[in-house]
Design a protein around this nucleic acid. Structure first.
Length: 890
RNA sequence: GCCCGCCUGGCGGAAUGGUAGACGCAGCGGACUUAAAAUCCGCAGCCGUGAGGCGUGGGGGUUCGAGUCCCCCGGCGGGCACCA
């Protein structure tokens, strides 16, 4: 999904392993990967019959840019922890992987390197697949597909045709955002600050005939359903709600005092019908039909409209945001005030795409209208009186008043508050038949046409006699021609000598194929459903999607908070309405991970220096950094998102080769909460690596210990360790359930530390029976550690477990451990004792001791007694097993 | 401009309203070693010799008790952005 390409030179190969009984990840990781694969551990059926509860874990599939990057490693590690954990909890887990394989980089590669997009893409996929496999992910690889395969996109064409038939597709002549560098149309969402999201080129406005998916038909439910999506991050729901942008207001028609080219009225949309009496002008968008009509006879108007088009979304317009207008000389009548008329302006700040492309200007209560009115000397009449303000003296200066208040200077609305005035105004408009209350949406239909080769062909044929004719089912898929050239700008499909010439399926006459291809967001709007039955000869097998959908846990970057997720939600509804699925929402749970960041480095030479890769930098003991080899000073820059341009990238392949997949996974999980940005540091990885070695040594030390039934007697050390072991099971379980992977890691470090303590105690404890008990407890602890660590470091877990409990088989097949409830209860509890809320000491008592006993012990504690000396205790607060607080006087 | 989120040691962070700083990283001291690496043991919020005091961006409030709840302010980050 992410088209950025990460490339860094491979770092030098350090040998991290030294002497000693070490965990050899280099042999262990491939071994267990082969073992899981051979046993088909992670394969599930399209329609399972085993009766297990289903769980569908999905990470956003990658764009095959060539290499995996750290963002992928984080994403797929998070998903794998969930998948392995849920599997151990008895779920049948669907955990698939595939490729978001259409898109511009392949065409760019074709242009720059003369390699065919398909070849480039499939080679990248092969490379990235191998990299992912080295991570040891619990994926069902038999479900893999790439969206550029005709076996995939033929079903996308079928879905489109079904949507077309269901009235969910429209062909519209529309103003589009044209990217002159990429030579293609961009969705509004793909225009960032007036520039193409990929090329960075200034976007122009152009009128084209385009295919649109009618996402706006679903706007109300796409909005209302957000309320129930309690396993989505609040801020993503909010971003989507803002994007859909529901507003309530009125649509009303202003009569022109004299008709213009047959037009006798102008329709506007407003959220403030209560301010109609404050009107001072009417403004229309430069693209408005009335503007075109005026321009046809008025050269100055034509020039102004042309000027607006040039400025359009240009940088100058965006940055200065200055308002320009042209007075057409036309006038409109006020709907309420007999005889009053107002000028009609063409204004650059009125958007044709929103509402009706026309507004009425009320400068006193809208900042934009005020700016415009001040610039052109138009009247400013306040009609909403702020609470407490004086009607006689209230005036508007440079700031419009947009707050609450009561209507004044407003005829029949006078005295009403803003909400009541809105209702009254709408009633009056409706009574006169010139307007009505409406709900308006910011969301616009989804333009999916792209003038590109490397995408899914839109399966329609244009016939001069029959118009637009859908490609018949039996002629699907419409496949891309392979013999294309990229030596000139524009769409290679359009340049192809023969491809577009076909017979009309309806009348048989020569006709022309649609040469546009789909926006690649279409490909990713249903792939999650295809995974349920990836080999089927229909888009999806109903029984399979009904079983697996919705995705229980979807994981990916926040950058897809709006586009991909909203399109997928729309697509799922459209698929439901065309009989493909039963669900409305594709993703029951969503988790958005943070970015992976790293320090950046620059040479000190020159004005800005040269960016250096981390491998080229050597850190000195004094904290300074120098260039490896030359010893030249290096400027350590800020920690920021890994990017090729800043060269602060770390190649996952190199990390896995040096430390192993488990270490990389462990570090990425341990550093911080997964929703935040994490900083990749060499020291952090090294620490994670040390842990793998340490716990492996512990397992080796206890591997010859027979794992029989518990011995009859446990000494204090053994009892302590067992308590920690079982509390860790409970704590890690809770942490994993809550996506608190860094906390799970911390609890496992604690368990490892406790085993270390027990090891020391083993040398000291007296009595053979106590020794045996402690050894048994240590064996239990390290075995539990292996099993608890398994979702995060699966290879190490298997390697340890194979030594500790070989008779039990693989960890991957074992259920998740359950703590012994009896061991979760402590022998004693330490209770904090406060005097006036300040900690003065602690007392250790049996759990659930009666209040008076605890309070007595607390008062007796020497330091507490000292603090209470000479004071009168007015209140004794006792919270069982937690705290005692004395409130004193005097 | 509007909306949202965040702010805890040197750093990443932990903490159902109940012993703030778990755990890790970095650091310091020690053991082992001819030496280093690795490993192991120990110390470690700040001020103070100590008793003790101060501490979760700042200020106020609720509470026996606030990192946690409420109000105000500040800073940082993100989303939307001429949406009428």
């Amino acid at each position: 999904m992410d088209e950025s390409v990460t490339a860094a030179p491979a770092p030098r190969q350090d040998t991290a392993a030294a002497e000693g009984p070490r965990y050899d990840f280099r042999s262990a990781e491939p071994k267990w990967q082969r073992e899981w694969d051979a046993r088909g551990c992670f394969r599930v059926a399209d329609v399972p019959t085993d009766g297990k509860p289903k769980y569908y874990v999905l990470e956003m599939f990658p764009y095959p840019s060539g290499k995996i990057h750290m963002g992928h490693v984080r994403n797929y590690t998070l998903g794998d922890v969930v998948a392995r954990y849920k599997r151990a909890r008895g779920h049948a887990v669907l955990h698939p992987m595939g490729w978001d394989a259409f898109g511009l980089p392949a065409e760019n590669a074709a242009r720059e390197r003369k390699v065919h997009p398909a070849k480039w893409t499939y080679e990248n996929i092969a490379n990235m697949r191998a990299e992912l496999k080295r991570m040891g992910l619990s994926l069902d690889w038999e479900r893999e597909f790439a969206t550029c395969q005709p076996e995939y996109y033929r079903h996308q064409q079928k879905l489109f045709l079904d949507f077309l038939q269901a009235g969910l597709v429209e062909r519209k002549e529309s103003w589009v955002n044209w990217d002159p560098v990429d030579g293609t149309v961009l969705a509004n969402e793909q225009v960032i600050d007036g520039r193409g999201w990929r090329s960075g080129a200034l976007v122009e406005k152009k009128q084209l005939s385009q295919w649109f998916l009618s996402i706006t038909k679903y706007a109300p439910e796409l909005l209302s359903a957000l309320d129930g999506m309690d396993r989505w991050p609040e801020r993503v729901r909010l971003m989507q709600a803002n994007w859909i942008g529901r507003s309530e207001g009125a649509r009303l028609r202003f009569a022109l005092t004299a008709p213009e080219a047959g037009l006798d009225q102008v329709e506007v949309y407003t959220t403030r019908p209560d301010t109609l009496y404050g009107m001072s002008f009417l403004a229309i968008a430069p693209e408005h039909p009335l503007a075109a009509a005026v321009a046809a006879r008025d050269p100055k108007a034509a020039e102004f409209v042309a000027e607006c088009r040039r400025m359009g979304t240009s940088e100058a317009a965006i940055e200065t945001a200055e308002k320009f207008g042209y007075d057409t000389g036309l006038r409109v009548a006020h709907p309420f005030i007999e005889g009053a008329t107002y000028p009609v302006w063409i204004a650059n700040f009125v958007l044709m795409e929103y509402g009706t492309g026309a507004i009425f200007g009320c400068p006193a209560h809208d900042q934009r209208d005020l700016d415009f009115a001040r610039k052109y000397g138009l009247s400013v009449t306040p009609v909403v009186l702020p609470p407490g303000a004086d009607a006689a003296s209230f005036t508007i200066g440079r700031e419009a008043y947009v707050g609450p208040g009561t209507a004044f200077n407003s005829g029949f609305l006078d005295g009403l508050d803003v909400d009541a005035a809105k209702r009254a105004a709408i009633e009056a408009l409706e009574a006169r038949g010139v307007g009505e209350g409406v709900v308006n949406w910011r969301l616009r239909d989804w333009g999916v046409s792209r003038q590109r080769y490397w995408g899914c062909p839109i399966p329609v044929i244009h016939c001069e006699s029959c118009g637009v004719v859908p490609v018949p089912d039996d002629q699907l898929p419409v496949t891309l021609p392979e013999d294309v050239t990229f030596d000139r700008p524009g769409n290679p499909l359009d340049h192809h000598p023969t491809w577009k010439h076909v017979a009309c399926p309806s009348c048989g006459k020569p006709a022309r194929r649609e040469t546009d291809t789909f926006d690649t967001f279409v490909d990713s709007s249903w792939y999650f459903a295809r995974y349920c039955s990836p080999k089927a000869d229909v888009p999806m097998v109903r029984a399979a999607v009904d079983h697996w959908m919705p995705v229980d846990q979807y994981i990916g970057g926040i950058e897809h908070a709006i586009l991909h997720l909203l399109y997928s939600r729309f697509f799922t509804r459209a698929m439901k309405d065309t009989g493909h699925v039963s669900v409305e929402e594709p993703f029951a749970g969503l988790f958005t991970q943070g970015m992976v960041t790293h320090e950046s480095y620059r040479t000190a030479a020159g004005p800005n220096g040269t960016w250096l890769y981390p491998e080229e930098v050597e850190k000195r003991a004094d904290g300074s950094a120098v260039q490896r080899g030359s010893g030249d000073p290096v400027i350590v820059g800020r920690v920021e998102a890994m990017s090729k341009s800043k060269r602060n990238t770390i190649d996952p392949g190199a990390i896995i080769a040096k430390y192993g997949a488990d270490t990389a996974r462990w570090f990425i999980l341990s550093d911080n909460p997964p929703e935040r940005d994490m900083e990749w540091t060499e020291a952090g990885v090294a620490g994670a690596y040390r842990f793998t070695q340490r716990v492996f040594r512990m397992a080796e030390a206890l591997q010859s210990t027979p794992a029989g039934p518990p011995p009859g007697m446990f000494g204090p050390a053994a009892r302590t360790l067992r308590g920690i072991t079982h509390k860790t099971v409970a704590a890690v379980t809770e942490a994993l359930e809550g996506f608190a992977f860094n906390v799970a890691v911390a609890r496992l470090y604690e368990l490892a530390n406790a085993i270390g303590e027990a090891e020391k105690a083993a040398g000291e404890s007296a009595g053979a029976e106590a020794q045996a008990g402690l050894t048994w407890a240590r064996h239990e602890a390290i075995t539990m550690l292996a099993r608890l660590v398994a979702p995060m470091m699966p290879h190490l877990a298997e390697e340890m477990h194979a030594r500790l409990r070989p008779e039990q088989g693989m960890v991957a097949d074992l259920p998740w451990p359950e703590p012994d409830p009896a061991l979760l209860v402590a022998d004693s509890v330490t209770i904090a004792v406060q005097v006036m809320g300040k900690l003065r000491g602690t007392v250790t008592v049996p759990p659930d001791s009666p209040a008076d006993a605890v309070i007595a012990a607390a008062e007796a504690e020497p330091n507490v007694a000292k603090a209470l000396e000479g004071k009168r205790i007015v209140k004794r607060v006792h919270v069982p097993n937690r705290i005692v607080n004395f409130v004193v006087a005097g």
